[in-house]
Amino acid sequence: MIVAAIKPTEHLAALAFAGRHRPRVWEPAPWIFAIAFYFAFPNYLGFGTELLVTILFALSLDLVLGYAGIITLGHAAFFGAGAYTVGMLAYHGIWNEPISSLMLAAIVAALVGLGSGLVLLRTQGLTLLMLTLCTMALLEEAANLGHEYTGGFDGLASLPIPPLLGLFEFNPLYPRTQYLYVLIVLFIAFLFVRTLIYSPFGQSLAGIRENTLRMHAVGSPVRARLITCYTISAAIAGIAGGLWAQANAYVNLTTLSLDRAAMVLIALILGGYGRIYGGFVGAVAYMALAHFLAKLYPTGWQLGLGLLLVVIALFARNGILGIGEALLRRIRAKHMPQ
């Protein structure tokens, strides 16, 4: 009898582990919500597009920060690298087909990620934090100095972005194409990241985050894994930047700025890092609040946002998703037979 009582629980845990990658029932919800937003709020699609780009950017940051535990404050370096790739190629009349330029943006950002990762990832903690910040600052200053090619502080404006697949026009006033385009790219990137984090590679990243020494001890190629992860993340951030440049038909220095890097970090922490939906929740909460408060009180909206961040920092260390998880655990504990 006793054996029978223990076995199913063991079995359950093993099942849960083996099936952890299977889609949950609620997982289509965010995507249904995103499509519903398209039909329900046609006048908010400019904001919606910006939101989706930020989610994609947060997703890329989550991969390095939440899963691999690489602390970075300079992730906008890759966002900007992607944005400038799209922007400069289009502005100087070299190449502007949207989808292939996006791939070029990913490649350039990945190269920047690989190059800087080879050097940076030898360090840890605060040194790493400072070096990521420096990489971004160097790129920003390079873009400022090369203003003949990059447009400097004023940026490159009115980029000639041709219709998507030769069919769908990018209308600046009603950005329907931009919204759906970004949504589709986000979905593909999400599927990729989701597969990645549940793969053995993703599990080894979590291992490195939790205990680097032990991962060395079990023979895991720690540095190679970190550099690979950093490069992949950079490529996704580059795609986000490329999308931003295409959707706005515009690129300027703020794509490489600390403001952007810090904002996405705040959004991710607000939502809950190390959870694949953390970026979704955090970006929506942060940006929607900032957007609508700013509409109500153009001069004082930052107060409301600041208060929310203080409350989250004080009472919900694991972000908004962390609150949800804690609640779920409590409910389960109550209903669990003793």
Partner: peptide, 16 residues
């Protein structure tokens, strides 16, 4: 509020 010189926020404000 145009918020910053980044272009995107001002652009969204104009669009809305």
């Amino acid at each position: 509020d145009a918020k910053n010189p980044g272009g995107a926020d001002a652009k969204i404000a104009v669009q809305e």
